[in-house]
Design a binder for these strands. Structure first.
Lengths: 343, 343
DNA sequence: TTGAAAGCGCTAACAC
DNA sequence: GTGTTAGCGCTTTCAA
């Protein structure tokens, strides 16, 4: 029951009620050592009776700690990012840390973020989700003077949690190769449609090329078709492929979202999957199972959880100097991939 | 360029450099009146030269304002919620307010939120996205002593931004009726799968029934089939419908996500849409266009923006006492609905 | 228009 | 173990 909220109880009120000094209240409530169990109990009772909640502003000012971590995402509306943030959120709140959310939105937003550094003086740590940073940005982040952990990329001096995109892509392509495919195309998001400079598209494109070449297949720019990121883009990219003279027998999509779009286009065109053409995605999006999409899965939410845990470690000083965690990917075979159709 | 971050400049440093008192610095930097333009310029220069950023903790403690708003969502991974948060985020950051994110996650999380009230003393306002509140919860929120705005529901004494779910549903059903359909089923999410007590499923179910009955059609529980919320659930619900003896000629899905699942099942079953069966969704999800889904659109991101704006108004005192905004919905006809097939 | 002074409500040495 | 004493870095009367 909350006392009529007029003026919140202060630490002094609690101290008086418990018959101790404010510092003892502070120590008791924060679970510090050097407080007798009896006193602690008395203090806790008094605090509960007064519905006491310490003023964050005051304790931040006095201690210099904010008990807050900043979480920065490019677009929080993207499934992947939202999932990572949710993972981080659960760990952070579990640890009684506040989560300050920052959504970059676009290139302008990103620039604003890095030169205004709105997190300045208000967080103890920062989590950047899929925001690759150049040297200047690294310096800016350092200027915050707090531990930084990256998800989805890595950078010298910062902790990071990610997958191996090239290796994941290789798994996808090898799956297609094993099925006998030789004419394989990739659908991926456009660079210039990527004002935020994600590293993922590039890495996956590289992985694609390397794996093809490594398998002794020829590779040319015509094997890659680009479109804006997303379901829509995937659909359009597949249209482009259909319009070309030599249809591939298999398509690797940079992300499941793009694969969804591709599948849609194929369906409209009446091309059977996988009988006529195979499609494989990447990420194992929550909808991949429903549309029976073969894909490369990666732990998404866990990356947020692990990143947050790294941050907690850094804050409690039992840090091993900017850990770099690489999480596993694996092939999930479903119904959209099959043997190369006979010529 | 940021000075070597060692010890951040304080207001006193700025004051000294500008040759004025700290209070003048404070006034200048916050754009208060009663500061000569010349002085203000001098202060701003000094501040810039020292890369001065006021300590939020100190100013919060001194002023009693946190310049922070708490944003609470049930599941931030759901497209709708993420979209609303993104809308709110842009408005809030534009106004230099921090955004403290809280994700309820499940029933336990929700309970924890309401009885621990982790936002206590740390926000100037709260935005609840699709969290209907009962009397106790209303009281708890009041206890925070800050303005509260709800998105997706409304409650006495709180501002709110939402759509008229019943009316939106009526539009969907009328569209089907106009196409000649008489056997119309609804796919909706299960109550007991809704630990958070969303109001939406209920309202849309009511709207469905009312519109059918209003049109003189009979209505029975067999017209509604439930499944867990989401694409998967929609797919399963449609399977149930297919298994029943009398297939409807049209289906209204509570949400586009569920409609996507339904479409998938229909596709697998080889039932042509809309030749054999029409499907209409609700929300106008970003993927609705790609799959050509007829649906009822609602402004999603704008609801977050408007809600945040309401909060800003409340904070700047030009509040009109808990405004209730109802935003419009409209029918978007695409390819999944068509005339009732001949008997 | 500006400055001086008194807090805001905690935490952290340091003493006992 | 516990209390005393200074701050932490701002904002805000109140005077000038």
């Amino acid at each position: 029951m909350v006392d009529s909220a007029e003026a919140p109880a202060s630490i002094i009120d609690v101290a008086r009620r418990a018959g101790v000094s404010p510092s003892t209240v502070s120590r008791s409530l924060r679970g510090m050592p050097n407080v007798s169990e009896a006193t602690r109990q008395r203090v806790m009772r008094a605090a509960a009776e007064l519905s006491y909640v310490a003023s964050p502003a005051a304790s931040r000012l006095a201690s210099g700690r904010t008990s807050t971590v900043g979480v920065v995402v490019p677009f929080m509306t993207r499934w992947f990012f939202a999932q990572v943030v949710a993972g981080a959120e659960s760990v952070l709140h579990e640890a009684s840390l506040d989560l300050l959310l920052y959504n970059l939105g676009d290139a302008a937003g990103r620039e604003r973020f890095f030169d205004r550094l709105p997190l300045q003086r208000r967080v103890d740590a920062v989590l950047l989700v899929c925001v690759p940073v150049d040297d200047d940005e690294r310096a800016a982040l350092r200027g915050l003077g707090v531990p930084v952990v990256l998800v989805g990329t890595s950078a010298p001096g910062f902790g990071s949690v990610r997958i191996d995109d090239r290796e994941g892509t290789a798994k996808a392509v090898r799956h297609l190769l094993n099925l006998g495919h030789e004419r394989i195309a990739m659908i991926c998001s456009l660079d210039d449609d990527d004002p935020l400079g994600f590293a993922t598209p590039l890495l996956r494109r590289q992985g694609f090329e390397q794996t093809l070449v490594g398998a002794g297949l020829e590779f040319g720019p015509e094997h890659v078709v680009g479109a804006p990121w997303g379901v829509d883009g995937g659909a359009r990219a597949m249209e482009q492929l259909l319009a070309s003279d030599r249809l591939p027998t298999a398509v690797f999509a940079e992300s499941d979202e793009m694969a969804f779009g591709a599948l849609w286009t194929l369906r409209r065109a009446g091309l059977e999957v996988p009988a006529r053409i195979s499609v494989i995605g990447f990420d194992d999006h929550e909808m991949a199972g429903v549309v029976d999409l073969t894909t490369i899965s990666q732990p998404v939410r866990p990356q947020g959880e692990v990143a947050a845990t790294l941050l907690l470690d850094a804050l409690t000083e039992r840090t091993d100097e900017a850990a770099e965690v690489v999480m596993p990917t694996h092939l999930v075979v479903r119904g959209t991939t099959g043997p190369r159709p006979p010529r």
